[in-house]
Amino acid sequence: MTALTARQREVLRLTAAGLSSTQIGRRLGINGRTVAHHLSSTYRVLGAHDRAHAVALAIHFGYITLAELAHIASKETAA
């Protein structure tokens, strides 16, 4: 399996936090379509069908740890 790029991992972490492509784009200073492109290429690398599947596979393959997921969730809940 090809490794995810740093940007793909970053977009995936924000996806795991429940942010939309538009919200992720604003947070990263990129266009929502660019976010969609990163997600699309991430799906191909992981063999995912959608956002939830991509996040689950990212956890399975170690791109997102459960500790990171808990941290992401706590940050987003506090915001």
Rank of each mutant, 00 (worst) to 15 (best):
E10T: 10
R26D: 10
T77L: 10
Q23H: 04
L57E: 06
L4A: 03
L4I: 01
S20K: 07
H49Y: 11
T22L: 13
A54D: 05
A36I: 02
L69G: 09
E68S: 14
S21V: 00
L69Y: 11
T15D: 05
L12I: 04
R27I: 03
T42G: 09
Q8K: 03
H53P: 12
A78D: 10
G32T: 00
T34H: 11
A54S: 15
R9V: 13
A48N: 13
T2S: 11
I24G: 06
D50Q: 12
R7L: 02
A17V: 01
H49W: 11
A3L: 04
H71Y: 05
L69Q: 13
V55N: 09
E68D: 14
F61A: 08
G18E: 01
R13H: 01
I64N: 13
H53M: 10
S41Q: 13
A16R: 03
G29H: 11
H49P: 14
T34F: 01
D50C: 15
I64V: 15
L39P: 09
A56C: 06
L39E: 05
Y63E: 09
A79V: 02
K75W: 02
S41N: 12
K75E: 12
V55A: 11
H38I: 00
A78L: 09
H71E: 14
R33T: 11
T22A: 14
A36S: 11
L57R: 14
I30G: 11
M1A: 07
L14W: 04
T77H: 08
T5M: 06
V35W: 01
V35D: 03
S20V: 04
A67S: 14
